[in-house]
C-alpha cells in the first residue's frame, strides 16, 4: 500500500472509484475522511472561514461530478483531490476576493490565531503524528536539502497560495530572482524525489 501521509491513498482511491459510479454513501465517507485536510488547505489559502467553506463546497461538487476521471495509476487520490480543491481556492484568490483581508493580515493578529486554534482543536494522537511524520519524511528530506531561502519560498508558495510577484513582495526580492529560485528549487526537488523512489 502506498501511503502519502496519514490519509491512506488506498482508502481514498477506493472511495473515489465508488463515487464515480454514483455511490452517495461513499461520497459522504470520502468527505469525512478527507475534508479536514482539504478544509485546512482552503483556510490557509483564503484566510476567511466563510470563503473557505464556499470553496470547499464548490470543490466537492466538482469531485462528485468528475470522480470518473480519476486514474489511480497517474497519482495518489489525495493529490488528485488537492488539485481540485486548490484550483477552486486559487480561483477565489484570482478574483481578489480576499485582497483586503490579506492586506490587514500583514499587520498580524486575527486569522493566524484562528488557524492555530483550528490546528490544535483537531490534534492527532502521538501515534498518528508519528505515522504522518514518517510518511512525509521523503519530501521533508528533499526540502531540507534545498537552500533555506528556497525551502521557505516553496513552503510559503504552496501553503499560502502566493504567486511569483506576491512572493517577491513578501521576501523583498526582485521578481526575476524569485522565479529563478523557485525554478531551481523545483528542479532540485524532482531530482531528489526521483532518487528516493528508485
Amino acid at each position: 500500500m502506498i501511503q502519502t501521509d496519514s490519509i491512506t491513498t488506498d482508502a481514498a482511491a477506493k472511495l473515489i472509484a465508488r463515487v464515480a459510479v454514483g455511490d452517495r454513501n461513499s461520497f459522504k465517507d470520502l468527505y469525512q475522511l478527507t475534508s479536514p485536510r482539504l478544509f485546512a488547505m482552503c483556510l490557509r489559502l483564503l484566510r476567511v472561514r466563510e470563503l473557505a467553506e464556499e470553496a470547499l463546497q464548490d470543490a466537492f461538487i466538482k469531485i462528485w461530478n468528475s470522480a470518473a476521471t480519476y486514474r489511480s495509476e497517474r497519482g495518489t487520490a489525495l493529490g488528485w483531490l488537492s488539485r481540485i480543491v486548490r484550483n477552486q481556492c486559487l480561483d477565489y484568490l484570482r478574483y481578489r476576493r480576499v485582497e483586503a483581508v490579506y492586506h490587514v493580515d500583514s499587520h498580524g493578529n486575527g486569522d493566524e490565531d484562528m488557524l492555530n486554534n483550528l490546528a490544535s482543536a483537531d490534534q492527532k494522537s502521538p501515534e498518528q503524528l508519528a505515522e504522518a511524520a514518517s510518511d512525509n519524511e521523503h519530501l521533508a528530506r528533499c526540502l531540507q536539502a534545498l537552500k533555506s531561502k528556497q525551502q521557505e519560498l516553496i513552503s510559503v508558495a504552496y501553503t499560502e497560495g502566493l504567486s511569483h510577484s506576491e512572493l517577491a513582495h513578501r521576501f523583498t526580492l526582485p521578481l526575476g530572482t524569485v522565479k529563478s529560485l523557485v525554478r531551481r528549487a523545483l528542479l532540485s526537488l524532482k531530482v531528489c524525489l526521483e532518487r528516493g523512489l528508485s
Binding site: T4, S35, T76
Partner: peptide, 14 residues
Amino acid sequence: QGHLVTLDQTEATP
C-alpha cells in the same frame, strides 16, 4: 500534487 500535499498536514473539521 501528491508530493506537495504532504507539506501541510494541518486539519480543520468543517
